[in-house]
Design a protein around this nucleic acid. Structure first.
Lengths: 344, 344
DNA sequence: CTGAAAGCGCTTACAG
DNA sequence: CTGAAAGCGCTTACAG
């Protein structure tokens, strides 16, 4: 059996209280005692039982990452990986472990969150995507359980969040296409229940309106963050009698699907259709043509979110509860000045 | 305060033992009692403290995933994500949570493993990459702690493993290039301390020898699973006075780097260099040209590994402790019959 | 079928 | 500076 604090105490001829204090570097322990106890800990190869520790200290030094119901879709997207990198990077540094919270086979995310939160398995929760009217956020907010959101919450302005200014980002990208001479610009959105989808749509609309360009409902298509969605959006849009010459696309993965579909149909990018998308995943630059994309600093989003959450968990006051990570446009080959041949 | 088992017992007028038995569906509890207790649990919105439960039951219903020291590199690769999808898929179904084990800032992976294992935070450990002489495996093996390896262990044949037959896979892919008329075939390997790198090198060598083709040490290059490595390998190989006409590459990500470099230098794939790689990540098919790749069933590797580990953890006997997931070649545009212009 | 009691391995007032 | 004791929220023989 592995040595416990009791074994150490016995062997060292002190009480378990003393051993516990040595472990936690309590200030009022004599150097000699500490030294002796530490030597025995070494000798017996002692490692504390973290479960027992958590039970009494009410702290787990663990953060939960909520996986969405369709974990598959999220996990397929480099966004997840990149955010994870940022999260792991900070949490490791801060001495926190990470627990993935997968929703039960055919249950809701909220169930899993309740089980973990009430089960005292984590000190705080990271939410990677903000949905409109998210019951998980409502629950955590009501319960007062520490959590941070990558995204934005409309209903709970006091929620700790790290986000891109998606309205501005979409506005900027759209504006870039407008400056290139495009007048018929479409928008391929993500799932409409995500806040990010709404914000980007708003930014897109704002730019179109300001430039007094035509607004056409059929130029706005919704989908998932999957290549298939891009393929479908492309099929629909290119089949329109009056079709756009440029597209703002909400995710690079969707753009890949669009490019692929266009290529299969014999169209060319950007000659037949200019594309500008979001996320700037590493393959965007390597695609053919390279994809123009808004870099939203995904690693930074994850890193900062973790930073904020841990500060909150540890009771340090967080001055700015709604942080914005700056974005930047990377203009590449997939977007180009309007091709005169196509011009309306 | 959240309700505990004690509150339920008090309110229901039974002992805590009885409540505990109701929770765990103990057979010898009267239906009436069970019903009453359950009603109160509902009423008080009771959820068990999982930490307390773990402490006494000595089971956490949690699996640990070991992140390598350079978590960055692993996380950048779609291999990780895809394996995670398989892992999450099975573990969720089986009711297990997942704890990411990140190595301490500048410490070794083994430290983190010991802390988690001895700290009783998980019931078993998943290792995503097998290194030669891996101290982590040595530790877990000696300790008798349940673990499974995606890969192969040379030192501990009794380790639970799920692997590709990498020797055969590399042999098959090399042979495919040979059949296409290539006689000068190079190999771009991953880190040499990984078992997978050695196995694939062996398969490559076997095919070359059998076909009595020239073996040249400078046609074998090592690198990391990064695009930069591909770029560097490409620079080196294309600068050789006598250079290969085809390359077997150990990872799609590396291949992307190679293709990118070749394109920048004005070379064309497959005309100037045929490429065949491993993993068949989803973007391999979409690249230009589409990348020929060995599909090793990464999702399946993760799924099966989790399945085996949980069986082991729960004491069910695992008949085949070293499982092989079949691979298949996907021959696409990046590999083509030797271009006569380049020949000899 | 049910309860009293001991115990899992820790931490932390309290007292000295 | 150190120890005895109580307790964190559960489970599980043991006895009835």
């Amino acid at each position: 059996m592995a040595a416990t604090i009791k074994d150490i105490a016995l062997r060292a001829g002190v009480s378990v209280s003393t051993v516990s204090r040595v472990i936690s570097n309590h200030p009022r322990i004599s150097p000699q005692t500490a030294k002796k106890v530490r030597a025995i800990m070494q000798e017996l190869n002692y490692h504390p039982n973290l479960t027992a520790k958590s039970l009494v200290s009410k702290s787990t030094k663990t953060l939960g990452i909520l996986l969405p119901k369709q974990a598959d879709v999220l996990l397929l997207n480099p966004f997840f990986t990149e955010a994870m990198r940022g999260i792991v990077s900070y949490s490791t540094r801060a001495g926190y472990d990470l627990l993935m919270i997968g929703p039960p086979s055919n249950g809701e995310e909220l169930e899993a969150v309740i089980r973990i939160v009430r089960g005292k398995r984590v000190d705080g929760i990271l939410i990677l995507h903000s949905r409109v009217n998210d019951p998980v956020i409502a629950y955590l907010q009501k319960d007062g359980f520490p959590h941070v959101l990558i995204g934005r919450s409309e209903e709970y302005p006091s929620t700790l969040t790290v986000d891109t200014d998606n309205v501005a980002a979409a506005y900027d990208a759209t504006h870039c296409l407008i400056r290139q001479g495009h007048r018929k610009i479409g928008f391929v959105s993500g799932p409409p229940n995500l806040v990010v989808s709404r914000d980007r749509l708003e930014g897109y609309r704002k730019a179109i309106r300001e430039a007094k360009l035509p607004e056409r409902d059929e130029w706005i298509v919704e989908g998932d963050f999957l290549q298939e969605s891009g393929f479908r959006a492309m099929s629909f849009l290119m089949g329109l009698p009056d079709r756009p010459t440029a597209l703002l696309v909400t995710d690079d993965i969707i753009t890949f699907g669009i490019v692929r579909g266009l290529t299969e149909l014999g169209y060319r990018v950007p000659d037949d259709l200019s594309l500008f998308s979001f996320n700037n995943i590493s393959l965007a630059e390597l695609a053919n043509p390279p994809i123009s994309s808004v870099d939203i600093g995904i690693f930074q989003l994850g890193y900062t979110a973790t930073h904020l959450l841990i500060a909150d968990v540890e009771g340090r006051s967080v001055a700015d509860r709604r942080q914005i990570i700056p974005h930047r446009l990377l203009i590449r080959g997939s977007s180009a000045p309007l091709n005169p041949r196509v011009k309306g």
